[in-house]
Design a protein around this nucleic acid. Structure first.
Lengths: 211, 211
DNA sequence: CATTTTTTCTAACACTAGTTCGATTTTAAA
DNA sequence: TTTAAAATCGAACTAGTGTTAGAAAAAATG
């Protein structure tokens, strides 16, 4: 009983890690307890000493993943240098979200990837954490809008959905080492704040190089 | 042999529809042939008269879904009013993508939702269509950039990923009748071209209403 | 109407999943 | 070292899966 509580807790953590990793890779239904057990250096039956069922294990993985992004983004807002602009705040939130999602956190990425495949009752119990996280973003964006950092004539709910989509989808294509999280956050914020368009010169009937 | 070829083709289509619908709802591994058969008013064993295996059925659903978005976006580019700006072109592509994805096309939405869960060899065979679709978008964006409708100093690959993410993620949250596809496309293009930021007044040290 | 082909059903098979539980090992306490 | 508790194993059970193949029904053909 030095660092953690006991061998039980260590095994528990090992199982959860293995589960998160496997769930993220293969999805929920396709992941077998045998695989999880193997990844945790155990026998499938032994898992039941720590968890009552596959769904219970799933639920804990999901909860942990969601709490981690939530905490990461929350901390990003608290640890900002004084006098930071609202753009800085949002940029920090974006970066925190992406970092948690893509950098060595199987829990969060598993959560994002498999949320659409989980059993009804697990979803019902987990949804509260999801809503709480959504509320955090709602606050961040609303505050920026109120302070005139974001246009006042827009529906922030829709913007938030599109934003989350752009960020979350990165778990599907991001390959570690290809594009840095900073760059991704830069581009995301560029699109959010300024866009990448150039005012087009009146009309263009010069070149019709279409298919 | 009037409209389609025979009863076989009708049943085939009915099975594919049922499969697309069920795959979209429950995911790949969690979907059983019994469910698909029931949704198609058949017995599970009868499916094998039309398809050699579950994976073969899956593959066809995926392919159809991808071809449909591809064709829809391609047509959107051909049916543009003459003299359309590049913003108009992109906007049309966005709308076509969203429409196919959200409006009564279980094939495309199934494709987007379950792509991350499919068996390796199915993916390997399907990936070509995915790449072809990506190439279509690459062309559209590159053309806009070359014509100075988009900033020339940006990585279009990354922009495309974020854009696709924002659009694709809508299958996870969109509820029919809540937000119109037009509105979604409007907001997406607004963010892409202009952003929703307002130039902040120098510095803000007035109110520190942070948590 | 008879007969052949096409399509579907039915029942079974092989296999794998999640789960259970008594035996066994490991760990901690006395 | 002895002993009790904690943790894991291992083998079995049940349920449900994808799949097969021969029987039955439906449709098409002569």
């Amino acid at each position: 009983m030095t660092t953690e509580q006991s061998k039980s807790d260590i095994s528990r953590a090992r199982i959860l890690d293995a589960a998160a990793k496997t769930f993220r890779q293969k999805g929920y239904a396709a992941t077998t307890l045998i695989e999880i057990a193997r990844a945790a250096d155990m026998q499938a039956g032994s898992l039941y000493y720590h968890f009552g069922s596959k769904d219970e294990l799933l639920e804990e993985v999901l909860d942990i993943g969601m709490r981690r992004v939530h905490e990461a983004v929350e901390e990003s807002q608290e640890h900002l240098p004084p006098g930071s602009s609202h753009r800085d705040r949002i940029r920090a939130a974006v970066e925190a979200h992406l970092t948690t999602l893509l950098k060595l956190d199987d829990y969060t990425s598993a959560n994002i990837r498999i949320f659409g495949q989980i059993p009804e009752d697990v979803r019902r119990r987990h949804i509260k954490l999801r809503n709480a996280y959504a509320e955090l973003w709602r606050r961040i964006l609303a505050k920026a809008q109120k302070s005139r950092a974001l246009r006042s004539d827009i529906d922030l709910g829709l913007v938030r959905m599109l934003l989350m989509g752009a960020l979350n989808w990165s778990v599907e294509w991001n390959q570690p080492g290809r594009t840095s999280i900073q760059t991704m956050a830069d581009y995301m914020c560029l699109m959010l704040f300024s866009g990448i368009g150039i005012d087009e010169p009146a009309r263009n009937s010069e070149d019709e190089t279409v298919a």
